[in-house]
Write a protein that binds this DNA or RNA. Structure first.
Lengths: 245, 245
DNA sequence: CCAAAAGTGTTTATTGTACACCCATGA
DNA sequence: TCATGGGTGTACAATAAACACTTTTGG
């Protein structure tokens, strides 16, 4: 976290430099912090490193940027190649630049975040991964490099985002209940919310609309189902709003 | 602004590659947007390029990151070397990565902002600059590369920052009046503020304290002088607050 | 009929916003 | 005495926050 003493670097480990592709920029990498929401818990997507430094450890999906590739495009590609997850809404988190953050040579990494619904993506261990898995946030294995820091900053970013953009569309089923939506917010913010105030706020934004159907397989009193109003949702996503909770 | 068609790059202009230092990372540069506040106007610090692409044009002070240097350190150094300005509180704005943003080869640049008081710094055209000058925001010359975009994003960042951190300490004289502080906020936010509401807010934060002296050389009714309360100011700077104006 | 979660309004406190007049000074 | 900017308080509106009981279902 923050500055560190400058340690000897450029050790250029010759461990197993399994032929890095030719057209990459060796100084700039991407790391993706993909949060998933399922069963009322936040999870993070990790992959086991199949090559390079810290081979065998679980780490954030990441990789190098190509010579003529934009950063966001690289992030999408890298994520897809290592984990099979593609077409997510990634957002830049910042540059991580500690001099010895990567042991083999100096690499600046650009962190990215997304929040997705695990069950909508098929995981597939790709190029540099031997295994891909979701880990509940409370149970994350030891991570290499500065990946813990990147995760923390990413989580803060996500929490901030929730305060000025609607969420849920990409995470909840098409038809969902308000208690479900509330749980989503609670899990992300890490605190309980008042049921009545929450409803007041959400309904006041008008980005969800109530259906006549109810959710009958909950076992208890059925909750009304709601749908996102795509137009209003999109507007709020672009324009932003203030959402104190 | 956003994605662009990928244009042919790597033209490697051999214009006047005035011997780039050996220990730099050619792919990663820094650009600094230094805003100055003086005479109730916002200015930006530019330098005339003495070497490389767009030589002769005014541009943001910038330069490359060294091989074992952290980004923030690089930003301070580059700023000092090109303009003489040093020891400012720089903040990261983001990565600018358009494939052809720099004509000679591909360079990712990390934008930085600071807000300073021009009269506390002596300008000195250094290494890659032939001239250094402040330009009022309304009168900025044509800038090369994506420097206009970087400036815009930096200004937005500054405006956001003003809403959750106190400002003024580094810009106003040790003893200042509330009308002075209000003008500062108005200039940065680009809009007028209500005098009474402004005072209520500021005084409510308790990061300024009123002195018994008044400012007697204003020509009009003397205004009371205030000082920043360093402790409270620092606390708010770290913890942040909500400041709607 | 019991347990469990869904649903529903009101009151109070806090915060934002709009607004108008008197005051101290130098010229 | 006038022009100029400095200083002050209040009322209204909007928003946040606290809070408890009834309803519906499955077992």
């Amino acid at each position: 976290m923050g500055q560190q003493a400058v340690a000897p670097i450029h050790k250029t480990h010759h461990l197993d430099m399994t032929a890095l592709p030719k057209n990459i920029i060796k100084t700039i990498s991407i790391d993706c912090v993909i949060f998933g929401y399922a069963d009322s818990t936040l999870e993070v997507l990790l992959r086991r490193r199949a090559t390079g430094p810290s081979k065998g450890m679980w780490s954030l999906p990441g990789g190098f940027v190509k010579k003529e590739e934009r950063v966001l495009v690289a992030a999408q590609r890298v994520l897809q190649q290592t984990t099979g997850v593609r077409n997510t809404y990634l957002e830049e988190v910042g540059v991580f630049d500690a001099v010895d953050r990567y042991p083999a040579w100096r690499v600046f990494t650009i962190g990215h975040v997304a929040l997705i619904s695990p069950d909508r993506y098929a995981l597939k261990a790709g190029s540099d991964s031997s295994e891909v898995r979701w880990f509940p946030l409370g149970n994350v294995p030891r991570l290499p490099f500065d990946h813990v820091e990147i995760m923390q900053v990413a989580l803060e970013k996500l929490r901030k985002r929730v305060r000025y953009q609607p969420i849920g569309f990409e995470i909840l089923p098409k038809k969902f209940t308000l208690p479900q939506l509330q749980r989503l917010y609670e899990v992300i913010l890490g605190k309980d919310l008042d049921k009545r105030n929450f409803r007041k706020k959400i309904l006041g934004m008008h980005f969800v609309k109530r259906l006549t159907e109810t959710d009958r397989n909950s076992g208890r009193r059925p909750a009304f189902l709601y749908e996102f109003d795509a137009t209003k949702y999109g507007k709020l996503q672009r324009k932003g709003f203030m959402f104190e909770l």
